[in-house]
Structures are given as structure tokens and as C-alpha cells.
């Protein structure tokens, strides 16, 4: 397996996310301790780890929902800093799917999807609706367009959230434990959409415990603990030959049930 440095020298043109020595503190609590990460275009990265390890905080730093205090994060050539223009540019290029869906309850399903393209990308209403209908079709809920999010099941709501994020035609999709709040029978329908998305070439970073999904489409799996990356590898190697003790312990906990 190549080192980070080798990777950097050979494939920099294809890099879409580059995080170097990222540190973050919540008050005196050191939640991110020097995280390094490199993602190439089209790659699917899975991040797993115990709760409280900082993995959610980390991906939220990538699209500036949280502010990192040290280190650099570069997304598609744009560095994430205090520059307002940079922040807005980055947020337009990244789509995010949340654990709690965070759909807009006062807007219809179709309006949830068209809102941002109309107001941020300044598309006409017809344009936006056309794209929205295609997306709703793609995630499998075309017939729900005129309903309100509260009337949908959990699985349908999360798929709607994915469509909403895709409407802005982002280059990168971030997933923060997308299936953790779902009833078991609905997890599969959401994972199917995510698999199709991965296979279509979208760059994705997914924080999840769904190892089946990781085995299917992930290019690399990162194990996060205590604010930093403990180890990472391809799925095959990661599950068969975990190197660190902590990784082995974690895997034994989540793979038994």
C-alpha cells in the first residue's frame, strides 16, 4: 500500500479533498488531533469508529458546519478558511445527508428539492422542477412529490434528503450516519440508493456502521478513534487483517450481531 506522500506525488491532479493535520478543540476538549485525509475524484470513503471519536465533527469541518482551528482542508482546489466567498463556494459543491434527515417540514417534497437550485443557482422554476422530478425518480419516490415530508416513512424521507442534496449537482457527497435513525426494514432501501450513487461515480465520504455497504462499494475504510485516524485500508484487507488492537476490538464489537 502506497504511503500518503507517494499518493500525493502521483495523483495530485485527481485529488478532490485534501486534509492536512486538522485539529479542533471544543473549549479545552481536543476533539480532532491531527487528521490527514486524501480523497480522489470518484472514490468512496467509509469512516467508522466508536461514538464520540470525532468522526462526525471531522466531516462537518469539511463543509464548514464546524470550524477547524489548525491545519488545512482543501476541497476541489478551494481552501476552507474564514473567507466568506470560499465558504459559500465549498458549501455549494458539497451535498450533505444527515442522520436526522433535517428535511424542511413546511415545504412539499418537490419544493424541498427545488428550493436551493432556484434560490442559489438561480435556475428557473421549470428547470428546477424537471431536475427534481428526475432525482425523485432516481431515488425511488416519484409519486410522493406533492406530499409533505412528515407524511413519508423514514426510509422515504432519507431518500428525499439524498435527492435534495443531489439537486445542487454537487461534486462531493457527505453522509453522516445516514441509516442510524432508521428502522431496520428501511435501511436497505436507502443503502441501495447510496450504492447506485457510488457506482455512478460520485465522490462520497460516508460515516456509518453498515459494513455490508462498505464491503460492496468502498475504496478505503478509515477507523477513527479518539480524534484521529488509527488505521485505514481497502475493505478486503481491513476486515481480514486489521493491524491495530483498537481496530480489532471495534470490529469484534460491531461484527458479532
Amino acid at each position: 500500500m502506497m504511503s500518503e506522500v507517494d499518493m500525493e506525488r502521483s495523483d495530485t491532479a485527481d485529488q478532490i479533498i485534501r486534509c492536512r493535520e486538522v485539529h479542533k478543540w471544543f473549549g479545552t476538549f481536543h476533539v480532532l488531533r491531527g487528521v490527514d485525509l486524501m480523497v480522489r475524484k470518484g472514490e468512496v470513503i467509509v469512516i467508522c469508529g466508536p461514538s464520540g471519536s470525532g468522526k462526525s465533527t471531522f466531516i462537518r469541518c469539511i463543509n464548514r458546519l464546524e470550524e477547524h482551528q489548525k491545519g488545512t482542508i482543501v476541497v476541489d482546489g478551494i481552501e476552507v478558511t474564514n473567507d466568506l466567498r470560499n465558504i459559500h463556494a465549498v458549501q455549494r459543491e458539497i451535498g450533505m445527508v444527515f442522520q436526522q434527515f433535517n428535511l424542511f417540514p413546511h415545504l412539499k417534497v418537490i419544493d424541498n428539492v427545488t428550493l436551493a437550485p432556484i434560490w442559489v443557482r438561480r435556475w428557473s422554476k421549470d428547470q428546477a422542477v424537471k431536475i427534481a422530478e428526475e432525482l425523485l425518480n432516481r431515488v425511488g419516490i416519484p409519486e410522493q412529490a406533492q406530499k409533505y415530508p412528515g407524511q413519508l416513512s423514514g426510509g422515504q424521507q432519507q431518500r428525499l434528503a439524498i435527492a435534495r442534496a443531489l439537486a445542487m449537482q454537487p461534486k462531493i457527497m457527505l453522509f453522516d450516519e445516514p441509516t442510524s435513525a432508521l428502522d431496520p426494514e428501511m435501511i436497505k432501501e436507502v443503502l441501495d440508493v447510496m450504492v447506485e450513487l457510488a457506482k455512478s461515480g460520485m465522490t462520497m465520504i460516508v460515516v456509518t456502521h453498515e459494513m455490508g455497504f462498505a464491503k460492496q462499494v468502498a475504496d478505503r475504510i478509515y477507523f477513527f478513534d479518539d480524534g484521529s485516524i488509527v488505521e485505514y485500508n481497502t475493505p478486503a484487507e481491513f476486515f481480514l487483517k486489521p493491524k491495530e488492537e483498537r481496530t480489532k476490538k471495534f470490529l469484534s464489537q460491531i461484527l458479532t450481531h
Binding site: T12, G77, D83, R85, N86
Partner: peptide, 21 residues
């Protein structure tokens, strides 16, 4: 080599979020 795009380097103060605050 970094692509050219919105500035990555010194942040002009009228766009710096801390300064604006």
C-alpha cells in the same frame, strides 16, 4: 499544483468572516 479559483492564501478582509463579525 493547486487549481486557480477563489483565493487560497491571504484572505481579503472584506470577505473574512471573523473581520465581518
Amino acid at each position: 499544483m493547486r487549481k486557480s479559483g477563489p483565493d487560497s492564501g491571504r484572505v481579503p478582509f472584506w470577505r473574512d468572516i471573523r473581520v465581518l463579525r
